[in-house]
């Protein structure tokens, strides 16, 4: 292959790419804010003794876990506005789609951690006179979050990567900017390589952090 690389056509146009990265990070942070909080609430509801409470939550969680993220995003952008007559701006819709998806996955992570809390630990909370809300706030939540941190971080960074899918519905994120830059410059190889590198540069430190946390936890447990 005698292709002559021209990375300058990309490096001269880094501005739009970084604008796109800012949007991607915004999507990621907001989706994680939803995923971390809503996920915990969903986990509590999943463990409710009442089936009527559990069932809709199970449906919600399984919908997001068992359909492709791409389909979810398209569904959110095209079907939700038609079905419910709401459209909240493309970034908001993207945040909601990604955030609900993440909440479903985080709910499972939280649930596993909550169920791993020893029963006597919660009993001690009752014996100390803490009411149910206080037990959730001061015992269950902090214990479950700490135990779930590696999984929550992994899920969070997966959403950072999945957020590239919203380019398809015209959210001007990193992937969207890369696509339009590639069309303008006729340099898809260089442009998408640089875009991939940017995704990698953000994700890699986080995955390393997760590995470190896992190793440290094994060391403490062992």
């Amino acid at each position: 292959m005698n292709y002559s690389f021209d990375f300058q056509s990309v490096t001269r146009n880094l501005g739009p790419l970084f604008d796109g990265l800012a949007v991607t990070l915004q999507l990621t942070v907001a989706a994680n804010a939803i995923g971390l909080t809503l996920g915990f609430v969903l986990a509590l509801l999943l463990m409710s003794p009442w089936r009527l409470v559990r069932l809709p939550v199970i449906l919600f969680v399984e919908f997001f876990r068992c359909t492709p993220a791409l389909v979810q995003i398209i569904w959110f952008f095209y079907c939700v506005p038609m079905l419910f007559n709401v459209f909240l701006g493309s970034i908001t819709m993207g945040i909601l789609a990604l955030g609900f998806n993440l909440a479903a996955f985080n709910a499972e992570a939280y649930r596993a951690s909550i169920q791993a809390i020893p029963r006597e630990q919660l009993d001690a909370g009752i014996a100390l006179g803490l009411n149910p809300v206080q037990r959730i706030l001061y015992i269950v939540l902090p214990t479950a979050i700490r135990a779930s941190i590696p999984v929550l971080l992994t899920n969070g960074i997966v959403i950072f990567q999945q957020s590239a899918l919203v380019a398809i519905v015209a959210v001007q994120d990193l992937m969207y900017q890369a696509k339009s830059l590639a069309t303008q410059t006729y340099r898809p190889i260089e442009t998408f390589s640089v875009a991939a590198l940017i995704y990698f540069a953000v994700s890699f430190p986080v995955t390393q952090l997760v590995d470190y946390l896992e190793r440290r936890r094994l060391a403490v447990a062992g």
Partner: peptide, 29 residues
């Protein structure tokens, strides 16, 4: 609330230090 109990297995809250474990209930309850 006027009964205290200590269990066979360890039940200290792992995310709180010793002092915080002791004052949690008096302060919150």
């Amino acid at each position: 609330r006027s009964i205290g109990m200590v269990f066979q297995h360890y039940t200290l809250f792992p995310h709180l230090n010793v002092m915080q474990n002791l004052i949690l209930a008096p302060c919150k309850v």
